[in-house]
Write a protein that binds this DNA or RNA. Structure first.
Lengths: 141, 141
DNA sequence: AGAAATAGCTTGCAAAATGCAAGTCATTTT
DNA sequence: AAAATGACTTGCATTTTGCAAGCTATTTCT
C-alpha cells in the first residue's frame, strides 16, 4: 500500500502544499502551517524524491535555492487529496470556507482539471487561498 | 487537516481493513497483513473511537469479543481510500489484480455505492478478496 | 570589496512514539 | 476443572521526532 510512503504526519502535507498552495522551496514548507523541523523536512523531501513523487531542480533566480516540484506520479495524488479535503470539511472542523468546499465537491472534475492544468503550466499560484483569510480574489476555472 | 487523525502508519490501514475486508475484531486486525503490535492497535482503536471514526460494541456470539465498526464518519472515508487504492495500483506495485482495479476505476460510483450498502446492512463479507492468494474459494468466516 | 543575510541543509541530543515479549483477566472450550 | 482464547496492559529496548545549533554556498547590503 501507499501508506508506507504517505503514512506519516508530514508527507501528504508537503504534497498538498505543493499542489494546492504552490509551495516550491524549503523555506516555504518550513514557514508553512504547523512548522516542521528542518531535519524532518529534509528527510521527507528526500524520501518523496527517492520514491518519485517530487523532483528537485536548481532555482534559476537564486543560486542558493532549490525548487521542489511534483512529478506526474505526485500530481496524480490530486484526487486523494481532494477527497480528503472534502471529508475533512464535512467531518472535522476546518478553516476552509464552506462555500469553497461545496463548490469543489460539486465540481470535482473541474477542480482536478484546473489542478492538472496549473501543474502542467508550472503555474504555482495557489489554487486555494491561504485559509484564515476570508474570500480572496476571483474564482478561477 | 485530517492528517492529524489519519497521519500515522496504522490508522488508515485499520479503516481500510474494516471497510474493504470486513474485519471487525481485535484479533483480525492483529493477524492482518503487516502485523501491528497489540499495544499500538489498542491505542489506535481508542483514538479512532474517540474521534468518532469507529464505534465498539460487544459481540453477541462471544462474550470475550468486541466488534469494531465504522461510523458514518468512518465509512465516509471510502472515496479517499478508493482514490488511494487506484493511485497505488497505477504508481506503485501492488498485489491487487489489475482487472479489479480497472473495474473500480471505471466504476467508482458503483464501487462506493456497494461499499455503503454493505456497511448499512452490516454485511462484513470483504468487498475485495484477500490479495496474495490467487483465486479465493470461500470468503473467510 | 568586505560584512551581514539568507537558503538549504546537517549534527547532537532530549523527548516521544513504536515494537516486542510477557502478563492479566474475563469468558469459552474441552 | 484445566486449557485456550480474545482483548488488552505493562515494562523495556529501539526508532523516530522535535529542537537548537552549526555549516556552506550564494546573495545582498554598505
Amino acid at each position: 500500500m501507499a501508506l508506507d510512503l504517505l503514512g506519516d504526519r508530514w508527507s501528504l502535507l508537503l504534497v498538498r502544499d505543493m499542489m494546492v498552495r504552490g509551495y516550491r522551496t524549503f523555506r516555504e514548507f518550513q514557514r508553512s502551517g504547523e512548522g516542521i523541523a528542518t531535519n524532518i523536512l529534509s528527510a521527507r523531501l528526500q524520501k518523496l524524491e527517492a520514491r518519485g513523487v517530487v523532483e528537485r531542480e536548481a532555482a534559476t533566480e537564486d543560486g542558493r535555492s532549490t525548487h521542489y516540484r511534483l512529478t506526474a506520479k505526485g500530481i496524480a495524488l490530486a484526487p486523494v487529496l481532494l477527497e480528503m479535503l472534502i471529508w475533512s470539511a464535512h467531518h472535522e472542523q476546518t478553516d476552509a470556507p464552506s462555500a469553497v468546499i461545496e463548490q469543489m465537491e460539486h465540481n470535482r472534475a473541474a477542480m482536478l482539471a484546473e489542478t492538472y492544468r496549473r501543474w502542467a503550466k508550472r503555474d504555482s499560484t495557489p489554487i486555494l487561498p491561504p485559509f484564515p483569510s476570508p474570500i480572496t480574489t476571483r474564482t478561477k476555472m
